[in-house]
Design a protein around this nucleic acid. Structure first.
Lengths: 353, 353
DNA sequence: TCCGTTTATTGAATCGATTCAACATGTGAA
DNA sequence: TTCACATGTTGAATCGATTCAATAAACGGA
């Protein structure tokens, strides 16, 4: 009492019970006799005691009841980027159900990454590995907390990870356009590699591209091959997954003599930018140009027109990740979940039919 | 060593130094002699010691380096709702600059709210008080950590809060439409009160409406009065700030004999839904109907057409909130920041001119 | 050589709770 | 009356670090 803060020990002494009993009054009220409990609670109130301090509890119990979500991106990424947000929303839903909190941890530079990962007060991590995944995993491993990697481009089977079947998903998207009758199709790729903007030759895909866009590319090619269309016949424009580079890419695609009648975009974000570009030039979707996105972010369902896309099972990914961490039951293998083609209003048969 | 976990004391013993010195090696390396430091670090490496455990450090040092953002909403709200996201993005930016982490804490039901607020490991709270603000503030107060309330509808000057000048902001929006020549204007209000959906009579505004929409309403009325338009002449439709109720409200507004030529929407979210409704009916914005939103969320800048709106100074709000908490320098008074009318493409003179 | 400084290290106290073996007490059955 | 058992309570150990007063060692100046 004298020292500013009232602690459990003070309450215990003032109420004439042991510290153990006082602790029980707050943490396991059912084991202490009602009469004693009331007395302790009254004393606590008089003294202005606010209940057990979490820091002490934490030290002893070791559980925080929160999971950390980390990415090699600024904090704004979690609230900005459609893919990240879709995931966060799904994770939020699962955490809400179990009363778990979420801490977002970011790290742009190496130094801070290490610090942030090490000092986040969480019971485990979900790693968003779109970029810099390798380093992120390594760092998190050192923390010796359960973690699970999402969107990991690394093969290493010792890393618990949940992935998606990008190849079949992409193939489904391409097949959809082909079935509608499109034969003049272009691809809008995504990535963080500066060298991969503008036109990309097929032979550069395997050596230079990151895992996710590479897999999607192969999925596209696979379906195109089924219809006898060779890789070389399909123009690829690389974007940095942002607005400016997408607009540039679109301009390049449509400056051709035979502009595409359909576009395969490797993300909904890019697809949506592409639609904006088309709208500004008076080209109608899907009448003039069809477009298929990727990811299945919520914006795709409310855009104008509503976007046909390949949806990730965000809810399932979130459910598995969170329970894996909370129950410390990490998957042994990499799991790859299926994607689902969601046909909406941005695709139609080509006009020239 | 024997007990699974290696702790600082083990390292100290193995290296033949005191625990104090071992601690310094990690936390204040500059004060220990290089030779000793190296020795300790080597031993630590051999033993597999990962550096100081944050839980112990926390207990002693008491600082977490993270701020909590709380709302009486599900966790998904933080990643879903445009207003919340704008704020979170701005907060993220400030936190990034100072290396601070963010924990989001939610609470739908009373019981869990208390628990979540009490067990969040943070140095302070930013409270999103759009709904249930009063209770949220009360609970947080008990935690005895610095906190600051945003979008608070309560007058109580003892609560540190940052607000915005809703009245002048709304007035500016209305004035903009009036200056363009609109005289037949309708209002789309927002709120969480079930009774306030559908047509709302002006006399119900003061007694029944929450603070934010009420203030905005008065701002609208103020500007309308300047042009000699009485409150009674302006139809108000209440929405629950979601899609279905907005569509219903729009339908009601346009079933009138004299449908409005312009709409004042109390949020960008609602404004965007309204535009969708109009688009589906073939009504063009701004040619057929002008619309002004409120808040200045990023979607408003990229929608089709780009939305004219009254922008909140999110960056400034975030900057002030975060620094107030980090430096424990809470504002004495309620601060009210100015809003800015951002004219874009969703407003034009009425057609019939 | 002696003394005053500076620098590095030690050891013990501390942060604030939880946990658990041991002990009291009360109850019912044999 | 005695024993077994359930129920409450106690006291001390523990979690894993940081901090600080006290001490030791090294150094420089007179």
């Amino acid at each position: 009492m004298a020292k500013g803060h009232v602690r459990l020990a003070d309450v215990a002494r003032a109420a004439g019970v042991s510290q153990g009993t006082a602790s029980n009054v707050f943490s396991r009220p059912d084991v202490v006799r009602e009469e004693v409990r009331e007395r302790v609670l009254n004393v606590a109130r008089e003294l202005g005691y606010r209940g057990p301090d979490i820091k002490g509890r934490l030290l002893r119990a070791g559980r925080v009841n929160a999971i950390g979500v980390a990415a090699v991106e600024p904090l704004t990424y979690f609230f900005d980027d459609p893919w990240a947000r879709s995931l966060m929303t799904a994770i939020g839903e699962v955490c809400d159900a179990s009363g778990t909190g979420i801490a977002v941890v970011s790290a742009m530079n190496e130094e801070r990454l290490a610090w942030n990962i090490n000092s986040a007060l969480v019971d485990g991590f979900i790693l968003l590995c779109v970029e810099g995944g390798e380093r992120l995993v390594e760092l998190t491993r050192q923390r010796q907390l359960p973690f699970i990697a999402l969107a990991l481009g690394i093969e290493d089977a010792t890393i618990p990870a949940i992935g998606i079947d990008n190849v079949s998903g992409a193939a489904a998207a391409a097949r959809h356009l082909l079935e509608l009758g499109h034969r003049n199709i272009a691809i809008l790729s995504i990535g963080d590699v500066d060298g991969l903007v503008g036109p990309i030759a097929p032979e550069r895909v395997d050596p230079e591209m990151e895992a996710t866009p590479r897999d999607r590319m192969h999925g596209y090619w696979q379906a195109l091959a089924e219809y006898g269309i060779s890789r070389e016949a399909v123009p690829i424009q690389g974007t940095l997954h942002d607005r400016p580079s997408t607009l540039t890419a679109m301009a390049a695609l449509f400056s051709s003599d035979t502009p595409p009648t359909a576009i395969l975009a490797m993300s909904d974000k890019v697809a949506l930018y592409a639609i904006q570009w088309l709208a500004e030039r008076g080209l109608k979707v899907p009448e003039d140009v069809s477009i298929v996105g990727f990811d299945g972010v919520p914006e795709a369902a409310t855009s104008l027109p509503r976007l046909t896309t390949v949806a990730q099972p965000f809810a399932e990914i979130a459910r598995r990740s969170v329970t894996a961490i909370l129950e410390n039951a990490l998957p042994k293998d990499h799991e790859a979940l299926d994607l689902e083609l969601v046909v909406r209003d941005s695709t139609a048969p080509p006009r020239s039919r």
